[in-house]
Computed example of a mutant assay.
Amino acid sequence: MKSIPSLVAAGAALAVLVAVPAAAQQQLRLAHYASTSSTTHAAAEHFKEEVEQRTDGEITVSIHPAHELGDDPSQVRGVRLGTIDMAVIGNPFFTAVIPELNALDLPFLFESPEHAYRVLDGEIGETIHGWFQEEGMQVLGNWEIGFRNITNSERPIVEPSDLEGLAIRTTPNPAHIKAFETWGANPTPMSFNEVYLALETGAVDGQENPVVLIHAVRFHEVQEHMSLTRHAYTAAYLVMNRAKFDGLTEEQRQILLEAGQNAGQFERDLVAERESKSLEAMKAEGLQVEENPNREAFMAAAKDVTRAAYVEEHGSELLDRIDAAR
């Protein structure tokens, strides 16, 4: 007959054996801001599929779109605290935590998508990812929102003066707010999930976002005009709670990083593929599109002013590195 201590030891060993599969099984919640018809949701599904296949189901991912788990600032807090495992959030909403990131939202900073990708995917991007780690977040992939354009319900926008007096929803990013103030508008920061109703009720006259996103969330239904200003590029990041990430095996961490990067490239390709189709579809539904606004005038009015404000607070090192990547 086994002694009491040996029985206890055997039971403990059995408990460990039983616990191993349970500990290896991980269900991760992934939150994002956009609708299920968006490129972001398509990329999230791409990420989910790759992770679940490559981990043989040890890691499963549940996707929570359209601010289901809270607005963007809430999702940033949730990821940092660990109440949300992962989220896809636009760069402007991280600037409250990492103010240096305001640089990426400066008007006319990036001359092309390729310029933005060289910055985000290269050594500068590695520096930025380090800032996220210091704030309790692991970047799994550089995703995309894209180049922003202005819509409104009042009039065509060709020159900056056409924005005079219009209430335009912006992100809370200081660079976005400063630019629209410089152009004579009344910038009105608000959460993305509040924008459609604000446009529909006339609480704001317009907003600014990329073509594909505007179409996906149906903003054109409550706007009359779009102007293709492409005045700023917005990156998005797939981020994960750092402690949660560090608690995975090395192999699992590598899979998440590779799947996050692959999904980011998938979204970039999808944005490029959908842009012209989205534009034509919105025109067919009655949206009046100004395809050749005076971008030089918009640039002249806002680029130097917003850049100087950033340099005064954060210095020019990051901007110099971004310029060198042109």
Rank of each mutant, 00 (worst) to 15 (best):
227 S>Q: 05
264 G>E: 06
268 R>G: 02
232 A>Y: 08
295 R>E: 11
275 E>W: 04
236 A>E: 12
280 E>T: 12
293 P>K: 12
242 R>Q: 14
280 E>V: 06
283 K>M: 14
278 S>E: 07
240 M>L: 05
228 L>E: 08
236 A>P: 00
291 E>Y: 14
288 Q>I: 14
243 A>E: 15
249 T>C: 06
241 N>W: 04
273 E>K: 07
283 K>S: 11
278 S>R: 08
264 G>S: 05
291 E>I: 14
285 E>M: 14
275 E>C: 05
246 D>E: 15
271 V>M: 05
269 D>T: 07
285 E>G: 13
287 L>Q: 09
273 E>M: 02
284 A>E: 15
276 S>P: 07
223 Q>P: 00
277 K>T: 15
263 A>Q: 06
250 E>A: 14
221 E>T: 11
272 A>R: 10
253 R>C: 06
221 E>K: 14
287 L>S: 12
275 E>A: 13
259 A>N: 04
271 V>T: 07
267 E>S: 01
233 Y>D: 00
285 E>P: 12
268 R>F: 07
230 R>C: 00
231 H>M: 02
244 K>C: 04
231 H>D: 03
240 M>P: 00
227 S>I: 10
230 R>Y: 14
287 L>N: 12
280 E>Q: 15
293 P>E: 10
253 R>I: 04
264 G>Q: 01
274 R>L: 14
296 E>I: 05
289 V>K: 10
236 A>Q: 09
233 Y>A: 01
243 A>G: 09
236 A>F: 03
268 R>I: 03
225 H>I: 05
224 E>N: 15
266 F>I: 02
282 M>R: 09
253 R>F: 03
221 E>I: 06
248 L>W: 05
263 A>E: 03
292 N>G: 06
233 Y>H: 10
249 T>G: 11
242 R>V: 02
247 G>M: 06
291 E>F: 13
260 G>W: 00
247 G>I: 06
255 I>F: 07
257 L>A: 01
261 Q>M: 11
264 G>M: 00
285 E>C: 12
234 T>C: 05
226 M>N: 04
278 S>K: 04
250 E>R: 12
229 T>L: 08
256 L>M: 09
239 V>K: 01
224 E>T: 14
294 N>W: 08
263 A>D: 10
276 S>A: 15
235 A>S: 10
293 P>D: 09
273 E>G: 01
227 S>K: 02
245 F>M: 04
281 A>S: 15
272 A>E: 11
222 V>D: 03
239 V>N: 01
233 Y>E: 01
289 V>T: 11
262 N>A: 15
236 A>Y: 03
233 Y>V: 00
232 A>S: 13
292 N>F: 13
269 D>A: 09
283 K>D: 08
273 E>V: 00
242 R>E: 14
241 N>E: 11
248 L>A: 07
274 R>V: 05
222 V>E: 07
269 D>V: 04
225 H>C: 05
267 E>K: 10
249 T>L: 09
292 N>V: 10
223 Q>W: 02
250 E>M: 05
238 L>M: 13
